[in-house]
């Protein structure tokens, strides 16, 4: 049974999230090194973190008439919302808080990236950034509904919006097994709100970095970190929603949570490299004509199962 942790879990959750995100960055760096023919070493895994000292020494830039307040608000919101989403994600049998609307909380935090990335694109008063910000809105119209139906499928199966209840309701049979469509839609949604891999369109190189284009120094670091924090958060959330949470034989619950989260994270990091960018002008049609009806049918399955209980 998932229980609310002691006061220090408030500090532990963000630290754990940051550690998971750092692992994902390192794994991505190793895969990139292998692909580029460089030695796959610990040094190669650590090199992306040199962005930290670089961000700290950078001198500030001043663009003509930027919307500084909205720009910075957008950039900061991405990592901060990722940290806030950990409020409801159980680790083993411990969670910072287990409110009765945990699933809605996670959903709400994830939706803030819509506003955040649009603001990050609008703020610098630069054409490429603006295009990047609008790209995320179009992408959001495609990924958001399948993701919401995936969350609702899991909630319907447990007849609860409390994340702890959903994890506990999967005794013996994970939702990933009998709700595979919802699980897949959730994973695609995680890549989409992290705007990584096939959903990196808002920060695409074809638009000179899009929302990242005019960012330098600590602001650039925050937005980049926000992407990986969201990836880690989405992977961690998949475990209680679809993979039975901390349940498992032999090992303690926290160890099972960790193993499952790392596996989902690894899957996402590999998948992100395997696909080209899926532009919204193609993905919107697929999402609405195929994914939305499929995920709606997926919700019908747990609804009927619940009725039959």
């Amino acid at each position: 049974m998932v229980e609310r942790g002691p006061w220090w879990t408030v500090a532990a959750a963000p630290l754990l999230l940051a550690a998971l995100a750092a692992l994902a960055v390192a794994a991505d760096a190793l895969l990139a090194a292998r692909g580029a023919g460089r030695p796959v070493t610990l040094t190669a895994a650590a090199r992306p973190f040199l962005a930290l000292p670089r961000a700290l020494v950078a001198g500030p830039r001043r663009l003509p008439a930027p919307d500084l307040l909205l720009w910075r608000a957008g950039v900061v919101t991405v990592p901060v919302a990722a940290v806030l989403s950990t409020l409801v994600i159980p680790f083993g049998n411990t969670v910072v808080a287990d409110p009765s609307v945990g699933v809605v909380w996670f959903n709400a935090m994830e939706v803030t990236t819509w506003a955040a990335l649009w603001l990050a694109g609008w703020g610098p008063n630069a054409a490429f950034s603006l295009i990047g910000g609008y790209r995320f809105l179009a992408q959001g119209l495609a990924y958001e509904l399948p993701l919401m139906f995936a969350l609702i499928a899991a909630a319907t199966g447990a007849e609860s919006l409390r994340v702890g209840d959903i994890a506990a309701a999967q005794q013996g049979l994970w939702y990933a097994v009998w709700m595979p469509v919802a699980f897949a839609a959730h994973l695609a949604g995680v890549l989409a709100f992290s705007f990584l891999g096939p959903f990196a369109h808002p920060a695409g190189r074809d638009a000179a970095g899009g929302v990242l284009g005019e960012l330098s120094g600590p602001d650039r670091l925050l937005l980049q970190a926000g992407r990986w924090l969201w990836l880690a958060s989405g992977a961690a959330m998949a475990v209680p929603l679809f993979l039975g949470g901390g349940a498992g034989p032999g090992l303690p619950a926290w160890a099972w949570s960790l193993v499952k989260t790392l596996l989902v994270l690894a899957l996402l990091v590999v998948a992100a490299r395997r696909l080209p960018v899926v532009r919204p002008d193609r993905y919107v049609e697929l999402a609405w004509v195929v994914l939305v009806p499929l995920t709606i049918l997926q919700v019908l399955v747990p609804a009927l199962v619940v009725l039959g209980r």
Partner: peptide, 15 residues
């Protein structure tokens, strides 16, 4: 590529 020096897209992200 061999040195792992990332290629920046814009001046803001470059050294």
């Amino acid at each position: 590529r061999l040195r792992d020096w990332p290629v920046a897209a814009t001046p803001a992200g470059a050294d």
